[in-house]
Design a protein around this nucleic acid. Sequence first.
DNA 1: GTCTATAAGGAGATAGAC
DNA 2: GTCTATCTCCTTATAGAC
Lengths: 202, 202
Amino acid sequence: MNKMKFSNTKQQILSVALDFFSRHGYSSASIRQIAREVGIRESAIYNHFKSKDDIFMAILAEFNSRAIGKHVLSDDLLDDLGEPEKFLKNFAGKLIDYWNKPEERKFIRVLLMEQFTRVGQKELSITGYLNELRSICKLIFEEMIKNNIIKNFDSVTLADEFTGLLFLIRSELMAGEKTDNITLVRELMEKHVGFFWNAVKL
Amino acid sequence: MNKMKFSNTKQQILSVALDFFSRHGYSSASIRQIAREVGIRESAIYNHFKSKDDIFMAILAEFNSRAIGKHVLSDDLLDDLGEPEKFLKNFAGKLIDYWNKPEERKFIRVLLMEQFTRVGQKELSITGYLNELRSICKLIFEEMIKNNIIKNFDSVTLADEFTGLLFLIRSELMAGEKTDNITLVRELMEKHVGFFWNAVKL
DNA sequence: GTCTATAAGGAGATAGAC
DNA sequence: GTCTATCTCCTTATAGAC
């Protein structure tokens, strides 16, 4: 996230707002609480955003502009393409790490909570959220099929199967505040990748 | 749902409240709106429920007392146990139908929205919601393993893989109001069962 | 850019008549 | 069991001084 794009106060408002939205939901989080947490008065917020909804949209835009591929497809990861099972485990691991970042967790919570109150907002749907990731997976699996590493399944189905359950695992264990949930997430992730690899390997 | 358990007005309040909660979220739905929709004054609601939260808890209790197994494990389904692939397709189909009932869709939406605002309420978590279903699946897969129908995988993993993606498919396509989404849901469901069966069959 | 003051309305909930 | 009337509090948002 580009921290220099906004003034300190503006960025602080966005950060506090995301935190409140993710814990209480959009409508329960109040401008008053957000202002108090930032350390200013409610009215001062309106120098940076024209409404509560405007804050929400700014958060949406901020998260929509980041590219997930840059975070989960590091160079050292691609070195393992010769060992596909190891590659898939590492890839899923990167993803779990990415989804476990505090700001990303907050955003996923907001996404799951507000997806039904703002229908039609495509950035605020599970499909929209997983879109880029599924495209990346599709390309990877097409390459694996071409190189006779995995069975010749429909690459869209493969991407859905691989990413879908990972996202459910992460979502399901998102409610608890305890950070040690991540151990269980990682365990379930490894089981899923194991099952998946067994299903597709040649 | 036992429609005779409550008076007509009480049941109507619950029904309207669930509808509002599922569309706007708990905190955005107001007693005032609910009362207007039912056709009574706000104060009359307090003859049936002692608070807004009390209405929410009543809805939770209502849905928590239903047994999903009775709906998805019909007699004609169990006739197909000799043809496991057909059985799994029908079983998943029953599940999709069950999740597509208007009241159940509303409840799933409420569940996804409120799971983070009421942390610790186990009836209000994805895990709690899928618990019974996963147990049923686990038993089915253990039976299939014993009868050498499928590979000897960990039955918990099998249940997670089978039910998990079905639930994600249903959740992901829950936001749109259009009922014809069900066609796409069914299509994705069949692809998932096909992939799953290929992975586990002997 | 932040403050005080205030507007205007909606929220959940209760009292008491019928 | 439903009504009218009312209480108290909180909400988003604006006006204008500094």
